[in-house]
Computed example of a mutant assay.
Amino acid sequence: MHPHSTSKLLDLKDCIINKIDHSDSFIRITISTKAKEAHCPACGKLTSKIHDYRHQTIKDLPLMSKKT
């Protein structure tokens, strides 16, 4: 399935689908968010620099009878 179609199907706004893994028991969709500008908590200036990346696992309802 095309990543854009998957984004629309799952209603993933402002996300990039990096990878979709299928197995007999699960479907894993790896996504990342688009970088946004934010205010620095120390000086208050607007910046687009990324300080840290975090990996977070989110479990959802089954998709095609498989864990998602």
Rank of each mutant, 00 (worst) to 15 (best):
H55Q: 11
K34V: 11
P3Y: 03
K49P: 01
E37D: 09
S65M: 10
L9H: 08
S65H: 13
S23D: 14
D24K: 12
G44K: 14
H2E: 11
S5N: 09
R28T: 07
D24V: 08
T68M: 02
P41D: 08
D52S: 03
D60R: 05
A38F: 15
K45I: 11
I58K: 04
K49Q: 08
M64F: 10
K67C: 15
D11Y: 08
T68N: 00
I58H: 06
K13D: 08
A38P: 11
D60W: 04
D52M: 04
E37V: 07
R28W: 03
K13R: 04
C15Q: 05
G44T: 12
S48L: 06
I17K: 01
L12V: 00
E37L: 04
K13L: 05
C15V: 05
C40M: 03
H55E: 13
T30Q: 10
K66W: 03
D52N: 07
T57Y: 11
T47Y: 00
K19Q: 04
I29R: 06
T30C: 08
C15S: 06
K13G: 07
D11V: 09
A38K: 13
L9W: 09
D60E: 09
M64A: 11
R28M: 08
L61N: 07
L63P: 06
T30P: 02
I27A: 01
D60Y: 04
D24G: 08
I16H: 13
I16S: 13
C43L: 05
T47M: 01
I50C: 02
K19E: 03
K36M: 01
K34C: 10
N18T: 09
D52K: 05
C40E: 04
K13Q: 11
T33L: 15
D14H: 05
T6N: 11
T57E: 14
C15K: 03
D21S: 04
A42T: 13
S32V: 00
Q56K: 15
S65Q: 15
P62K: 00
T30K: 05
I20A: 02
R54E: 08
K49M: 04
D14M: 03
K13H: 06
I27M: 02
S23I: 09
D14I: 01
K66G: 01
E37M: 08
D14P: 02
A42S: 13
T68V: 02
I27H: 03
I31T: 09
K34A: 12
C43F: 06
P3F: 03
C43W: 06
H22T: 12
I17W: 02
T33V: 15
K8S: 07
C40H: 04
L63C: 10
K45D: 07
E37W: 02
M64R: 07
M64H: 07
P62I: 01
M1N: 11
T47H: 02
I17H: 00
S25K: 07
K67G: 15
K19L: 07
K34N: 12
H22D: 10
T57F: 12
D52L: 06
I20W: 00
I58L: 03
S7M: 14
I20G: 02
P41V: 12
